[in-house]
Design a binder for these strands. Structure first.
Lengths: 345, 345
DNA sequence: CTGTTAGCGCATTCAA
DNA sequence: TTGAATGCGCTAACAG
């Protein structure tokens, strides 16, 4: 393995000083045209690249930002990443993506690593396990260490930093309202355990919509899925009730798609016997039969916004920086799973 | 913004030398128990983290590897990444993910950046645009610079390095063979333009299966999708023929899912009137109606294997390193889109 | 026009 | 048991 070429080696080759080489490669006019050209040609030939570890160490910044996401298989997160990448690249930043796999421990490990100087700032969506433990020491430390931080999607109220969140409440509300509008009478929700904040808040939107419209809140219509066990089985129970729902709001794509599969197996007509709303940016929704109506999370926009906020903080010179929480409004992407034939008598 | 704590600052605090602090934090027995403990306590309290730029510069290695993938929204790539992460983390490596977005230019930019010393090795799946241009200078340079490289999925024959590829030929063959087994008589393929190697090779598997079984190769049954235009329209044409196919092999998930949508719109019964095979690790396949039979790409395994090969090369001391091409065998994941009611007379 | 020097943060060798 | 000195690769202020 050839070792990499450095300024030092080039300097030796030409029998000049290192700084002469450095300047020549930077096209400094301090260096004579001739020497400059020869050095540049040589460097180009040997494919010289400044060692960025050294450059960064020198400059005390890296032009790289870190992103920690809980999962990469969720389409929502990949959209967010694309949005982050877009703004980052536009501003000459590189993006380093790390996965926490919803694990507290991996989240801490990733942050430790990112905190060690390789990035100028960090964008995080909190792991479910961390939300469950409610242990946010590592975030506080990060901030204490002066590293800019932006939280997105899953945020932590007690941490003071820039945030970008979806209007989960509004989304839950809209979804539920839409089910009412297509005249569903018994509307169920399939959500996460309450420690997953986004699930909890979407549920609150659901409850608000019910309450405002004088629908009763019925515990048997609220399913909190524990992902450690079989999802289908937990959702099935909705349909085994004496009085099953005629409308379902699922807080994510997999739950919604699972409902479709179950409904089909039971020969329930979608949307006429059972209408379904999801909450997602995902691809699956477009390809189910019927295709799934869903609350649009605008993941790409979230990513862009998160990166903008991070740049804001990175570039802010004074000490009176004010944190900002950006709320991304949701809207509905209506497809077939809620497109009822309106029957007028 | 507080600036980060360094060895130097700790040294000043205790009025000892930097090297004493360094040793103390490494629990060196050269340092007296008492001093060691005090320094460690202090460092812990202030959340000291060695600056990895400095450490890496010193050690000439970073314990980080770079991954360049063309897209992140393809479930296959996310699976590969999970596999890479798994082996990387097991071996104390961090993973830095970069996206080329199928663009030659972004691929080169990413490689330039990674080549500048921040990673110990690189794993790449080639961008479509690069395949089209057949411009591989940047890969040659990378290797010349001595940075270990592993190519996966989309490889480049003329580049000499470790590789992990799916048995695309075998996959195409298997898929086509299975369509024959369920007694399809006119089997079409929906593939990519030939410059996308994986598409081309899968098509060759398809052709081999046809040929071996005395099926004619019919150009009108071979659709090469140009993703710059509407996919549905291009695929539709298959069904507008006088003699439409009764079996379709689509080389990726989106094409396959699109076929389902089209077939449904035309009221074609799947799989009886038209059977469909995809080629994917994706999630969509499970949630379409009917669910999609597909060639399993084993993305996770590919990722693991790629990382193992990279570690191999990184850790290899001698100069006679031998490159290896690992072929991941495919197999079929049969679901409903090919599950014909076998009717016996 | 070119070179010397210092320093970014750390680890390590050698000397005290 | 501690510290001084050196160097990883680079840049920039300053000197010549």
């Amino acid at each position: 393995m050839k070792s990499k070429i450095t300024l030092k080696k080039i300097a030796k080759e030409f029998d000049v000083s290192i700084s002469t080489v450095s300047k020549a490669l930077k096209d400094s006019h301090e260096i004579s045209e001739e020497v400059r050209e020869r050095i540049k040609a040589f460097a180009k030939y040997y494919n010289y690249k400044p060692n960025s570890l050294a450059v960064n160490l020198r400059n005390q910044k890296t032009k790289t930002i870190g992103v920690i996401i809980p999962q990469i298989v969720h389409h929502f997160f990949t959209k967010v990443i694309s949005g982050i990448e877009h703004i980052a690249n536009e501003n000459g930043y590189n993006v380093m993506i790390c996965l926490s796999n919803e694990s507290y421990e991996k989240e801490v490990l990733n942050m430790d690593m990112l905190e060690s100087g390789i990035v100028d700032g960090i964008i995080v969506s909190v792991a479910k396990e961390t939300e469950e433990k409610e242990d946010y020491k590592h975030f506080k430390q990060l901030i204490d260490n002066g590293l800019p931080l932006v939280l997105f999607d899953r945020e932590i109220p007690e941490i003071n930093c820039n945030k970008v969140i979806v209007d989960d409440f509004g989304g839950g509300f809209l979804a539920t309202k839409h089910l009412m509008n297509i005249s569903c009478k018994r509307i169920a929700i399939i959500t996460t355990p309450d420690h997953v904040m986004v699930g909890k808040i979407r549920k609150e939107g659901y409850i608000q919509a019910l309450t405002e419209n004088n629908f009763p809140i019925q515990e048997e219509l609220i399913i909190k899925v524990n992902e450690k066990y079989d999802i289908t089985n937990q959702i099935q129970k909705l349909f085994d009730q004496a009085n099953p729902p005629d409308g379902i709001f699922a807080v994510n794509e997999i739950y919604a798609a699972t409902v479709i599969k179950i409904a089909q197996k039971r020969n329930l007509k979608i949307p006429d016997e059972i209408a379904i709303m999801g909450f997602t940016d995902g691809l699956i929704s477009e390809y189910t039969t019927p295709s799934l109506s869903a609350v649009d999370q605008h993941g790409y926009t979230m990513g862009e916004k998160a990166m903008e906020l991070l740049l804001d903080e990175i570039n802010y010179q004074d000490s009176d920086y004010k944190y900002n929480t950006t709320i991304i409004e949701t809207d509905l992407k209506l497809r077939e799973s809620t497109k009822k034939q309106i029957i007028s008598y």
